[in-house]
Write a protein that binds this DNA or RNA. Structure first.
Length: 361
DNA sequence: AAAACGTGGTA
DNA sequence: TTACCAAGTTT
């Protein structure tokens, strides 16, 4: 008997590629592990997804290990001190994620009996979980047939279909195309496969199209430069802001720190005292902006690039008596500085004033 | 809906 | 060195 020639569905091609070429990641239950009966832990999937928002796999690995070691379950995290969570998150960036992580853990532990909702809608109602993360957790942890669209998938889909609409306007169209492509069987693996494909084959620059399981179907390959997709609106230039930071050391080697407000830039994190960060007005960036009078010595500048502006901080240092107080700050022993909730820009400022302030890096 | 929100790596 | 990029969410 004869059969009509069958064209493999794109999802099957992607899944077959994933079975051979998936990345092994600390939070992932890969196909061989699944074959041994292992199931994903929604807590670990959620934690990894939040950490991975706008953040590289490489950067996340150490933080994921630290968090899961220190707080093995969502209830452990819910019972943690927020300050300890911020300290552990320090350096990873986008600190609203850490504040929402703690709130989300509390909601799951205390309002959902310690069990994550297993639907996209239920997940999306939680703090810090948006469209992408809700779909990803639903698919990966609960095997729901949800359409997972992240930056990787946007790249794959935009090239596969030669989508001319620029992002973010193209998102609904892309989501519909992903939804149509997502299989009822193994939707979680399909989502992870599409992201791995975007991360390792369909890369932003120099994609390895020859190795792509979708190359035969790709509308861009062979016609145009894939690097031109997805189309994106041009980015705006970053303004420069100026400021001053004051690193005070007492005779025991302790450093004066204080806590930033809970919201906004670096919200809830620790800082050294400083001036405001002014938009280009060369205003009070000298010792007059100091938190208390002292023999402030200029010791250079630190440049730090944030998402939407570049900061040039003038650094001042001084040695002062221990009893000096200013507002709600405190003196922190230098040996314990590593454990503080200091964002990178503040570590840079302290290191500029006191090169051996931190144990390494 | 556009802007705010971190950091480190790569070319 | 400048520019872009990385598993986005919130307001």
């Amino acid at each position: 008997m004869t059969q009509a020639p069958r064209i493999a569905a794109p999802a099957d091609l992607v899944l077959a590629w994933y079975d051979r070429h998936h990345r092994d990641l600390p939070w992932r239950v890969s196909p061989p592990m699944a074959a041994r009966g292992e199931r994903p832990d929604p807590y670990r999937i959620w934690l990894s997804e939040v950490m991975l928002q706008q953040t590289t796999v490489q950067a996340v690995k150490a933080y994921f290990a630290l968090f899961t070691s220190r707080w093995p379950t969502v209830t452990d995290l819910a019972r943690a001190e927020t300050e300890d969570v911020m300290k552990s998150w320090a350096g990873l960036g986008y600190y609203a994620r850490a504040r929402n992580l703690k709130k989300c853990a509390e909601a799951v532990a205390f309002e959902h009996g310690g069990v994550f909702p297993d639907s996209e809608d239920g997940l999306k109602a939680l703090p810090g979980i948006g469209d992408y993360t809700a779909a990803a957790i639903a698919a990966i942890a609960f095997n729901r047939r949800s359409a997972v669209l992240d930056g990787n998938v946007e790249r794959v889909i935009s090239r596969l279909h030669a989508i001319e609409t620029p992002l973010p306007a193209a998102k609904p169209e892309m989501r519909a195309l992903v939804a149509a492509m997502t299989p009822a069987d193994r939707p979680g693996d399909f989502a992870q496969a599409m992201m791995d494909l975007g991360a390792t084959i369909c890369t932003p620059r120099r994609p390895a199209c020859a190795l792509c399981p979708l190359n035969a179907a790709c509308r861009v390959l062979g016609r145009e430069d894939p690097e031109l997709y997805p189309r994106k609106a041009a980015k705006k230039a970053k303004p420069v802001r100026l400021g001053a930071a004051f690193v005070a050391e007492d005779e025991t080697g302790a450093i004066f720190l204080r806590k930033r407000g809970e919201t906004g830039l670096l919200g809830g994190m620790t800082e050294v005292p400083g001036s405001g960060w002014t938009a280009r007005i060369d205003g009070e960036t000298g010792p007059a902006a100091a938190p208390f009078a002292a023999d402030w010595q200029a010791c250079g500048t630190v440049t730090h690039v944030f998402t939407h502006f570049e900061l040039r901080l003038s650094i001042y240092r001084s040695t002062v008596p221990h009893h000096v107080q200013a507002g709600d700050g405190w003196w922190q022993a230098k040996e314990t500085l590593d454990g503080e909730a200091l964002p990178t820009v503040m570590k840079k400022a302290i290191r500029q004033a006191i090169p051996d302030a931190f144990s390494r890096r």
